[in-house]
Simulated assay, not measured.
Amino acid sequence: MQGNLNEIDIRSILQLIELGQRTGQLLIEAPSFYGSNRAEGEDAEVNYSGKYQQHYWLVFFLNGRIIYCQAGDSLSRIDDYLRHHRVDTGLEQQQLASLGEHNPSEYEYLWLLLEENFISPKIAENIGYRLICETLFDLLSLREGYFIFCQDTAIAPQLTSWEISPLVTQITQQLQGWNQLSPYIHSPEQLLVLADRVHNSSLPQATITKLKQWADGKTTLRQLARYLNRDILTVAKVIYPYVQQGWLKLTSAQTNNSQNNQLVQGQKKAKILCIDDTKSICQTVESALQAQGYEAMGCTLPEIIALTNPLEALSLISQLQPNLVLCDITTPQLNGYEICAMLRQSQVFRYIPMIMLTSKDKFIDRVRARMAGVSDYLIKPFNNDELLMLVKKYIRG
């Protein structure tokens, strides 16, 4: 099951998984998340990064029930909740670096904290529940993006599982209340800033001191909700009167500039396209393949094309019509997963072999690669034989 969110919404997808009692993973990717939701005319500080940003979420299911939800690769969500529970882990960097081999890194982090007795099962379950709720809050807000559900064995071990329908009903009600706070409050990622006029207000000094504690220009609404172990709507309702009175300001942490790349159909003879921001990697690929008769010939319709800019590669791919794509996962502006997912939505490139060049080989990387439609992996550093074996596998003759 896969498609676009403008054709079917998240609520319907979750209902299908629940009714079918499915086990597996749901991957959702969406560009410019929350960045485009800023109210027109709002006076907000904006950090224009000039970079296309893609957000992704993974939801894990067991027999139609949610086991866990992960947003991105960061461990900071759990760290925010540990602050509320006054937990100082003291984990070694080596322990953190090994996370993500068999399960999502965040999920393994939660289990590590539990196994090392830094948190109790009750706290672990509470954190898992809060993370699922905030993830569903984001997902049920989406109106565009791409999703794919992959049936698979459930992640293990399992802490607990939650029924989908009550969660969806609860979060839907939260969203209805959330929308009533617009235009003052519109994104969980807005930063809290204390206004100068608060010092001349009639607010008690104790209240001003409390506002200063959180409104430091560095704490988002979502972080504040985690620190307090409350849902985002409850926190937003508490600060709403202070925002209305102008005692608190909410500013946007960032605005994402999305770029749309359209692929058109065409047909050319066999070519290999290498997309990697490191020139030495492209040169290594060219050198290895030249020995097998694949020769880079500049701009005159080469059989091997090495490009370091992924946006340029996407703009040229319909013209180049490669039969095989070698792509680095961590290219700037667009990563390899995003490039692959975009190509898989095109009728022309739906079945083109795509090999990811990566130094990452953890659970979350393998799941994302499979769901994005990656054909194969090539782990850096690789030798010529490994490269040639994969090329011969996908290009015969």
Rank of each mutant, 00 (worst) to 15 (best):
I155T: 01
I119Y: 06
E144W: 12
L159R: 08
D152G: 06
G128R: 15
C133L: 14
D138E: 08
A154M: 03
Q151G: 08
Y146I: 03
L112C: 04
Y109I: 05
E108G: 11
I119E: 05
A156L: 04
P157D: 11
E108F: 06
L113T: 05
N117V: 00
F149N: 10
W111P: 00
A154F: 04
N117L: 10
L113W: 03
R130L: 15
L114M: 08
F149Q: 12
L110E: 05
Y109M: 06
E134I: 15
A124R: 08
A156H: 09
G128A: 15
T135E: 12
L114E: 02
Y146K: 11
I127C: 13
L110W: 03
L159D: 01
N126Y: 13
I127G: 06
L114I: 08
P157M: 09
L159W: 05
Q158S: 04
Q151L: 07
L159M: 08
I119S: 02
E125C: 13
L142N: 04
E115W: 01
I155C: 02
L110V: 01
L131M: 15
L139Q: 07
K122I: 00
E115C: 04
E134M: 13
E116A: 10
G145I: 00
P121A: 13
L142D: 07
L114K: 04
I123T: 02
I155F: 02
E144V: 08
P157E: 11
L136T: 10
G145T: 03
S141F: 04
D152Y: 05
R130T: 05
E134N: 12
T153C: 09
E115Q: 14
L112K: 03
F137S: 08
A124F: 04
I119W: 08
F137W: 09
E108T: 14
I123S: 12
I127S: 12
D138C: 06
F147T: 03
R143H: 13
R143M: 02
I123D: 11
I155G: 00
S141G: 09
I155Y: 01
L112D: 01
L131D: 14
T135K: 15
